[in-house]
Design a protein around this nucleic acid. Structure first.
Length: 256
DNA sequence: ATGACTGGGTTCCCCAGA
């Protein structure tokens, strides 16, 4: 089983590229982020024509997450992260597919630091910590996949100094990510590529992709039952280099 | 200290992204 996460940066603008990627790489599950569309305007028919059932949690203009399943309809378990009824941003969608629990996560960016957006990021991570503990307690196969907006270590960025003041690599952001992992989650990409991290994002500006000036912020976190079945992990880097690409690359794992 | 790029909406400029 192949599970992927892909921050598409606008599903309407990305639709030809998204369908092309689904057709070429055939993930069984695809978690999308930043679909940037309202529920009413989600391109359900085009996704279905590509062979995928889908559920989505949209928002006009910003954010928005979806879960796609090849030849199946994901069964929704949860939309929105519990813990703050005031938080109306569309950043979390959890589903069950073929016995697997999977969540599409769009964690807040948090810039600028300091400020209310950074506080929101840390609070959101605390809420994720609480909810994730409940998922672990089920002892089931669970994959929390998405754009975490956290660069876990200095090894996960092309030049740490260039990003030093960024919310993505503040000590508080990293500590929250480490604390989540310490619950018992396996960072699948790190597990399979411990010595040569793969970038999942390259900025549109400054010729970043050509210089390979990227970093690793899209993560697939596995519960022990899922981690036991981990076979491989990778990044579809060539899709980042195509015309009208997202600034993120699709990131995937395979499970036995 | 700033801007480079891109997508989307309040669209012919502004905001947010990372």
């Amino acid at each position: 089983m192949k599970i992927a996460t892909y921050n598409v940066n606008g599903i309407k603008a990305r639709l030809p590229r998204l369908v092309e990627w689904l057709t070429e790489t055939q993930p069984d599950v695809a978690c999308l982020q930043e679909i940037k569309t309202s529920d009413e305007t989600f391109p359900e028919a085009e996704i279905r024509d590509a062979g995928y059932g889908a559920i989505w949690h949209g928002q006009k203009g910003f954010n928005g997450v979806a879960v796609l399943a090849k030849g199946a309809d994901p069964v929704e378990r949860q939309r929105r992260l519990p813990g703050d009824d005031e938080d109306v941003l569309s950043r979390y969608l959890e589903a069950e597919i073929d016995g697997l629990i999977v969540a599409s996560i769009y964690l807040p960016n948090g810039n600028p630091v300091p400020g209310p957006k950074f506080e929101y990021k840390l609070t959101w991570m605390e809420r994720l910590h609480v909810h994730a503990a409940g998922l672990l307690a089920t002892e089931r196969q669970v994959c929390l996949a998405g754009d975490y907006n956290v660069i876990p270590t200095d090894a996960d960025v092309w030049k740490p100094a260039a990003m030093a003041s960024d919310a993505l690599m503040q000590p508080e952001s990293r500590a929250a990510f480490r604390r989540l992992a310490a619950q018992g989650w396996t960072d699948a990409l790190h597990s399979r590529h411990p010595n040569n991290p793969l970038w999942t994002f390259w900025d549109y500006t400054m010729n970043s992709f050509a210089r390979d000036a990227g970093f690793r912020i899209d993560h697939l976190m596995l519960s022990p039952a899922a981690a036991d079945r981990l076979v491989d992990a990778g990044v579809d880097k060539d899709h980042r280099g195509r015309e009208k690409a997202s600034d993120h690359a699709p990131t995937w794992i395979t499970l036995r």
